[in-house]
């Protein structure tokens, strides 16, 4: 029998603590590059000015380790655990301990209410939203993606009919972006999940937001669809902050899954320009 690699729950808590702070203060390099490149290309003067402010903002955040946005989100924590890893102690408790420490020590906002109807703030940004995947190997990968709700609220899911086909998918993506308008803080990143079940399409749409904005789907067919949808979205004229302009989206990231003969689920998960996530592998 293969020997299990032991990881202590404290290692997980410490990694999550650090990832919460880093993710909230330092935008990924690919997102920064995409924003600054869009700023250079933006032909509409007011839009260019808005993008310049956004660039200025992430620089201030970087230099002072200051939250990029005051909505430091609900902490979405993606765990990929190798089959040959054994964790001593509760993973869930360790992740939440890390979130608790990170949000306190990083001067981050606590935005979680315990009950969706009663709405009392838990005061420490826990519980986090944890997603687990079991993978081969003896490593444990943790990604923290703080998700703000200005953009989360503008996300939608639809169970299309198979006869709606690719055109139905295109139209639904554009409808979601159009209806969102200025609300999700454009320029946005558009995560799309096609196929699976009702819940799995939403899950892969969220996971699509973790992919670098300059990396296209490995399947050339979907890579082409990503490029096409980005061009379509950027011809809508919504622009940065919805004030008009070319730069409405930085990227469209599409993930797909097999699905049922009777269905074509499509989920569109929108992220604001502060498309934050950070990974550590233990």
């Amino acid at each position: 029998m293969r020997e299990m690699r032991e990881i202590k729950s404290e290692q997980i808590a410490e990694a999550v603590r650090k990832l919460c702070i880093d993710a909230n203060c330092h935008l990924p390099a690919d997102v920064k590059h995409s924003i600054s490149a869009s700023c250079e290309r933006e032909p509409w003067a007011p839009a260019k000015e808005t993008l310049e402010r956004i660039v200025q903002n992430y620089r201030i955040a970087d230099e002072g380790c200051q939250a990029i946005c005051q909505d430091t989100g609900v902490a979405c924590v993606f765990i990929e655990i190798g089959q040959d890893v054994h964790v001593a102690g509760s993973i869930e408790a360790a992740v939440n301990e890390g979130v608790r420490r990170g949000y306190e020590e990083g001067y981050l906002r606590k935005s979680v209410v315990l009950d969706p109807i009663e709405r009392k703030n838990t005061g420490d940004n826990t519980p986090s939203m944890i997603y687990y995947d079991i993978v081969p190997g003896d490593q444990l990968s943790i990604t923290v993606a703080p998700k703000g709700f200005g953009s989360e609220n503008m996300s939608q899911i639809k169970m299309l009919k198979p006869s709606d086909g690719l055109q139905g998918v295109r139209e639904f993506i554009l409808k979601v972006v159009e209806e969102a308008g200025p609300n999700p803080c454009p320029p946005i990143v558009v995560g799309v999940g096609i196929g699976g079940t009702f819940d799995k399409s939403a899950l892969i749409a969220k996971k699509a937001l973790l992919r670098p904005v300059d990396q296209r789907n490995a399947d050339p067919k979907y890579a082409a669809l990503e490029e096409e949808m980005l061009a379509e979205i950027n011809s809508l004229g919504i622009g940065p902050q919805g004030l008009g302009g070319k730069t409405t989206a930085l990227a469209v990231n599409i993930e797909v899954l097999p699905t049922h003969i009777a269905g074509l689920p499509v989920a569109v998960n929108i992220n604001c320009h502060a498309a934050r996530h950070k990974t550590e592998v233990l």
């Binding site: 956004i54 903002n57 201030i60 200051q66 946005c69 005051q70 606590k110 703030n121 902050q241 604001c272």
Partner: peptide, 27 residues
């Protein structure tokens, strides 16, 4: 409208801040 997602930049324009009601609501 203020620019959304520019909290670090906009926070610099705030000189003083004092909670005057509903402290229990936190943020």
């Amino acid at each position: 409208g203020a620019i959304g997602g520019c909290g670090a930049l906009l926070g610099k324009c705030v000189r003083t801040s004092e909670v005057i009601a509903y402290e229990d609501l936190g943020a």
